[in-house]
Design a protein around this nucleic acid. Sequence first.
RNA 1: GGAGAGAUGGCCGAGUGGUCGAAGGCGCACGCCUGGAAAGUGUGUAUACGCCAAAAGCGUAUCAUGGGUUCGAAUCCCAUUCUCUCCGCCA
Length: 423
Amino acid sequence: MLELSYIRENTAEVAARLGIKNIDAEGILKQILEIDSRRREAQKDLDDNLAESNALARQIGDLFKSGKASEASDLKARTAELKVLAKELQEKFDGLLQEQNNLLVQLPNVPHSSVPRGKSAEDNEIVHSEGNIPALFEGAVPHWDLASKFDIIDFELGNKVTGAGFPFYKGKGARLQRALINFFLDNAIDAGYYEIQPPLVVNEASGYGTGQLPDKDGQMYFCDLDKLYLIPTAEVPVTNIYRDVILKSSDFPVKNVAYSNCFRREAGSYGKDVRGLNRLHQFDKVEIVQIQHPDKSYDTLEEMRSYVAGLLRKLELPFRVLKLCGGDMSFTSALTYDFEVYSAAQQRWLEVSSVSNFESFQANRMKLRFKDEGGKTRLCHTLNGSALALPRIVAALLENNQTPKGIKMPAALAAYTGFDIIA
RNA sequence: GGAGAGAUGGCCGAGUGGUCGAAGGCGCACGCCUGGAAAGUGUGUAUACGCCAAAAGCGUAUCAUGGGUUCGAAUCCCAUUCUCUCCGCCA
């Protein structure tokens, strides 16, 4: 959620920046400010009323103590009037505040000034490419065929036991998963991240804190009986650790890493996008989360970007980095880099990581603040990124490394898998 | 799941109807003391919103959450949530 004071002081700029996300916000901004001035007026009236009531209550107390009961009764008549009025004023104020919040939560984060304009994924800017696209041998097949050929991932079994999008990993497939998780966690720890194992379900306040709620309600699995949501990413519990927290400047940077299962309903997905491992309802991901001083968050974003690049390099996967255009960015992000690996048999780029700076957008919702050098309480900046999401990495590893003799593992992984070929 | 106890500031903890945003302690910050440190000592130390050009200052709200009683609620009543103890069940 954007800060009201920021909107108030930079209205034109907010409107212009939201234009990069193809949102015509002028109307809603105007509405917010109009309600804001009415809200403040209502608050003034209410506060004045309550101040008078409080003063009278004190007087009545004093009069009672000094035995002047009749004078006290006279004042009581006035407090009764004030009380009726206070209720009305309170309702008016609450209504306006509610109205204002309803509008505020609809506004997405303001994109960074470097974000390119654009409508869709077509308009994303490729800022980096690396690695060679492998030339596959005659008879190379997509990963879903490799999965069944070597019996390492079983989609049919998943369909039977649970449903589409919930595969079983078996034998060397399961070990490869476990190896990747450990590989990613160990790398993160070496880079200074603190490992956390979070709960896989969260309450409503947490969903709201990171911005999944209210606008992405239908994308999360929900346990109705207990009113809990299955997490779509570890970002949700790990960032919410800091909900309603005031950090010290010396706490920066907070660097956390968490491995978790992720659950996504993926309503509305279809076609080749969901084939094989390309889009699952349950998958594994290692997520890095940082909390930073506002002045340093963009340096941190670059640091995270180069960290993720390093992982892909070690895995010897060809990849490219995209700076997302306004139209393709998430609701909460100010700047996002997507990492895509080339999956050679499908002959397409697959998104395996998304690294974002949310600036103070999440922090404002969560009331995550810090005391700055001058002792002032300010909102922190939050960032996160996948490092990495497993399924598409597995897809690319299987496809790119297939040979007539089997699937070779990159050297960096062999120590973790305990084997160097799936045959 | 059954029975009971409880929820107060960063932490501990006092407070059972009035001047209580809240004693005291710890912690933290700054100063004094010291060759330096420790100890000692002094001062300060919640958050949000509003008024004000701004600071100072002032106002309002907040003692788990939401309602209620009262001129007045941390304190009384009701509901909800959570925590702890005992019993049961259990990886």
